[in-house]
Write a protein that binds this DNA or RNA. Sequence first.
DNA 1: TTTTGTTGAAATTTCGAGATTTTGTGATTT
DNA 2: AAATCACAAAATCTCGAAATTTCAACAAAA
Lengths: 214, 214
Amino acid sequence: MLHNTDIYETLKYRLMTNGFEHGQKVRAEHLRLEFGCSASTIREVLFRLSTLGLVEFRDQRGFRVPQKSAEVVNELTHLRVLLEAEGTAMSIRLGGIAWEARLTAAHHQLSHLEMRLQTADDRAPFVDLWFAAERQFHETLISACGSDSLRSTHHQIYCRFRQQLMVEDRAFDFISNNIEHHQQILDAALSGDEALTRQKIHDHLARHLMIAAS
Amino acid sequence: MLHNTDIYETLKYRLMTNGFEHGQKVRAEHLRLEFGCSASTIREVLFRLSTLGLVEFRDQRGFRVPQKSAEVVNELTHLRVLLEAEGTAMSIRLGGIAWEARLTAAHHQLSHLEMRLQTADDRAPFVDLWFAAERQFHETLISACGSDSLRSTHHQIYCRFRQQLMVEDRAFDFISNNIEHHQQILDAALSGDEALTRQKIHDHLARHLMIAAS
DNA sequence: TTTTGTTGAAATTTCGAGATTTTGTGATTT
DNA sequence: AAATCACAAAATCTCGAAATTTCAACAAAA
């Protein structure tokens, strides 16, 4: 039988990858059947996901997937830039060879996928792999920052960001630009230039920023 | 009778103000009696508070108040500086007269309390008022940043920060420095100098930073 | 036409009992 | 003394039914 934690991870993944419609209600009573447990157990899991921001809870009216909103994308992008730039700068100072090796590996994997994606007829089989690799790369950037609090805060923001953009990004229109961006971030990070790295992270995400709030 | 939301707020306040010992277990079965509801209801509330970081949940072994840790204080301070500096800079750009008025009012209230605190024989009756006013001032700083996501992220960090430091801060050793700091932050913000304001926010919180991570 | 009120169905929330798991104690063995 | 084990007590987790609240459709009044 499925354990509590499995349900949490399953629903988290589904919410992040738009397995539910934006704005759709998420009913514990329905999911109960799918997972073979009681509604209370689902409810518990949804509460945990709600403080992550992947579902919204309103008293007496249950859980709902957040609406898609350009405004929210803008806010989340801004926070991602802030946290990733800071975390990466700290990693540059503290990470050492081990971090550089991990970052290079993560980039290599992502880069390989992106190359193949660019020329593929059917991109569908790449979707999950790409999202995992992209997430891995960005998490590796800040992985040596030395602050669990920064990492978990970034994780929250990243999850909500993905939830907002997953649908659109499935088209992969941006893919050729992205290859360039990721390479530049890697090069800047390995060169040890903090300011340049911050700039490249900003540039990479800039296409999601409406207002130029620095 | 007490509603779900009231229990949430009551426990949140108690956790933030060290109404529980650091590291203490928080038993739903015990609190049940105090709030006159079932353990499941308490459990639900604790789950919500756990993703905020005010209690830690571990599978099959319940809820526990996070331990006090210099490391965590350092991390949370770093994030507070990052988020408050950014949020305040945005408020300076977007807030206008209305924000300046609110900020001045919040500072006036805090300043008044701090003056009286400085000379008071018994500081106990000021504790709750001061914490509320200090929180109000810092929340007002970022209140016009235009990003709900930034505000709620800051709120999470602020809650955990307070939980870590409430006990120590009750002594108010820092109070005379603080009066100066708050005044300087206010002046810098009203002058519209973003860089100076960022610096003053950093200086204000610097006493909680161990490592000089920028 | 718009607003207000009623009512039944559906969704949410609470509850306490029972099942499961962990924790603490003390005896037994190495 | 240290480690292992057994067992009882305590804590945690799950469940489904009952109580409460919201929602939606329709009727009545302004």
